[in-house]
Amino acid sequence: MVNEISIQDDFVFGSVMSNKRLCQHLIQLILPELKIEQIEFPTVQKTVQETQFSHGIRFDVYTKDQNGVVYEIDMQIRHTRGLPQRVRYYQGRLDGEMLKDGKKYATLRQSYVIFFICPFDPFSLGRHRYDFANYCQQDKSLALNDGRTAIFLNTKSTQNDVPKDLRNFLDYVDNKDVENDEYVDELKDYIQNLSKNTEWRNDYMDNRTHMMFHDEDVREEGKQLGIAIGEKRGIATGKMEAIQGTIDLLREAGLPEERLKTKVQQRFDLTNPQMQELFK
Rank of each mutant, 00 (worst) to 15 (best):
K103Y: 10
H128F: 13
G147H: 00
M240D: 00
T271E: 12
L187C: 03
I227Y: 07
F59H: 04
T246L: 03
V70F: 08
V184Q: 03
I247Q: 09
V178F: 04
E199C: 15
T43V: 12
M205Y: 08
E179Q: 15
L125D: 15
R208Q: 12
Q266R: 07
E220K: 10
T155D: 01
R88G: 13
T63L: 14
S195T: 12
Q244G: 04
L29R: 07
K176V: 05
Q159F: 06
A106G: 12
M205D: 01
L250R: 05
Q49K: 11
E257Q: 10
G238D: 00
M17W: 00
N145Q: 14
I243A: 02
R81K: 15
V113K: 07
M1Y: 12
N193Y: 08
Y204P: 01
F120I: 15
R88W: 07
V48L: 11
N19E: 03
K263S: 04
T209V: 02
I229P: 06
K46E: 00
S124I: 10
L144N: 00
R208M: 10
G96F: 13
N160C: 05
Q224P: 09
G238I: 06
R127L: 10
L108A: 04
K103A: 03
F132M: 07
N168A: 14
F279Q: 04
C23K: 04
G147D: 00
G126F: 14
F268L: 09
K164E: 15
V162F: 11
F11Y: 12
L108S: 01
D217G: 12
L225E: 10
